[in-house]
């Protein structure tokens, strides 16, 4: 199990998750996350060699749909929910660089 989580780690994941934290929040969240992660350390004591991870409790495989067109949404309805619209498109502030 890795070392305890630090304020740097929390600042890093907050950035990855696009959350802005004040200094006070950073300190508080770090303490709280550390407590949860310390508790979670008990999974470390389990011997899981050879154990296959379970992503899903389901026995399903090959759930496929036919390639048949179904109605799309009305554009006006869709755009009515948007914070900003221009030229029938969703408008966003300028993009710096490429996040991909």
């Amino acid at each position: 199990m890795p070392r305890s989580i630090t304020t740097d780690d929390v600042a890093h994941v907050a950035r990855l998750a696009r959350l802005q934290l004040s200094q006070e929040e950073l300190t508080r969240f770090t303490q709280q996350l550390a407590a949860v992660l310390d508790h979670a350390r008990d999974v470390e004591s389990l011997d899981t060699t050879g154990v296959v991870p379970t992503a899903h409790a389901l026995p399903l495989v090959n759930v496929l749909r036919d390639d048949v067109v179904t109605p799309s949404l009305d554009r006006a309805t869709v755009l009515a929910e948007a914070p900003e619209v221009e030229d029938h498109r969703f408008r966003v502030p300028k993009i710096l660089g490429d996040s991909q």
């Binding site: 048949v68 067109v69 179904t70 799309s72 949404l73 554009r75 030229d87």
Partner: peptide, 17 residues
């Protein structure tokens, strides 16, 4: 989803939840 896969259509017309 069942939205049409089609190039060059009016923006945001082939969209669903």
């Amino acid at each position: 989803c069942g939205c049409r896969n089609s190039f060059g259509e009016e923006p945001n017309t082939n969209v669903c939840p």
